[in-house]
Nucleic acid binder design. Sequence first.
DNA 1: CGCAAACTTGAGCGTACTCAAGCGCAGTGG
DNA 2: CCACTGCGCTTGAGTACGCTCAAGTTTGCG
Lengths: 225, 225
Amino acid sequence: MLAQATISPTAPTPLSYHSGQPVTEPSDLWSTATRQTCARNRSIYSEGDPADRVFKVVSGAVRTFQLLEDGRRQVNAFYLAGEIFGLEATGDYRFSAEAIVTSQILVLRRDRLTLRLTNEPALMGDLWRITACELERAQAHFALLGRKSAIERVASFLVSMGERSVTNGAIELPMSRQDIADFLGLTIETVSRTMTLLEEQRLIAMPSARRIVIRDRRPLMALDS
Amino acid sequence: MLAQATISPTAPTPLSYHSGQPVTEPSDLWSTATRQTCARNRSIYSEGDPADRVFKVVSGAVRTFQLLEDGRRQVNAFYLAGEIFGLEATGDYRFSAEAIVTSQILVLRRDRLTLRLTNEPALMGDLWRITACELERAQAHFALLGRKSAIERVASFLVSMGERSVTNGAIELPMSRQDIADFLGLTIETVSRTMTLLEEQRLIAMPSARRIVIRDRRPLMALDS
DNA sequence: CGCAAACTTGAGCGTACTCAAGCGCAGTGG
DNA sequence: CCACTGCGCTTGAGTACGCTCAAGTTTGCG
């Protein structure tokens, strides 16, 4: 709805990474993709499905995650408008993907992508860079999950979200506290308590649970390490 | 020394991944690489260095890691004989690499690789698959770091090492308890205590600290989830 | 307005951490 | 040959951070 005109699949779209540097991508890569609306909590693909499609978020937000047998969940990543997910080199999806809120996504069939790749081998390099970028982001997340305290994890998350999507001064969180907890390797209670703590310390403000304003960036960045 | 003949850089070498499926790689990709011996704890590259080389372990073992300002360390991965590391799509190395024990590694200059890629675009697909494989392994590690208990982490690690390198019935660990702790997001004491616990439960035997025998695979796999 | 879902807050507990001491083995030198 | 030394590993005791269980509050939506 909102940004549909600017992120039209037929227009040249810079592909922005979380890590910062935008990489231009062939203007019509997504021109043969179909647009699809996904309701909140709707599954996009599940662990074990054949990886026959690649996706790009137009609006909304998507989470990828894995479940342990006893129900413990690990959210691997959040994907916001403009970001690509489901790009596996081969085989089946290793993780599941769901829409966090009602979302518009572009769906590109894998065989179409393969076709394009045979005609334009240079494209392969772009895909590789996207995957490599994702890998770097994943590995950076290791230090957070393996070595950081709760307050450091939450601060890192807010700083990262602040760099990705800010609407007039406030971060709009599409995901629930549970999603955040499962992303940061914490419980929902710890996430909630920690955000309250950050608010008490005047580092952030919370006009509502899903809207976060960063009041003092410096100490948050310090916690980010 | 030992396996030099079979892992000769000029001979066709199947490239085996941790995830299992071997992928054939162009026989002479590493023919222009130089062989190098790295002493124990010797740095191979550091965070921030220009990513101008790609490496393949011939013998020994390598760790990649990141340091937080206060000295906390997160080991991202261990690379054993036959495995490739340092393959970044662009820019600088994001992490550091060190030899765990005295190791033989093949060093391929990035510009040579680029040259090969222009002549044989198909190679790019192989590189992409290597990176994608690494990404999958990284994301699988998320659940361990974010959601598993100490005993589950150690069990997962031992199962994984058992699949990668077994010498007549025993796992030879090239890395120290500290390396394992920093890989699993635990302390050295917890790793030690947990291994003792697994030994007391007769799931493993420890002829020595660096030699582990898996006595009962089933419950270990169960802990792995 | 009423209900359900999401979020917050509180109290008590447990797992893994911290700090500290002791052990075992390999290498070295008397 | 054996004491000495250093490093890596193990074990112990006490602590703390984040989890569990539970109740209460707020928000969003029919």
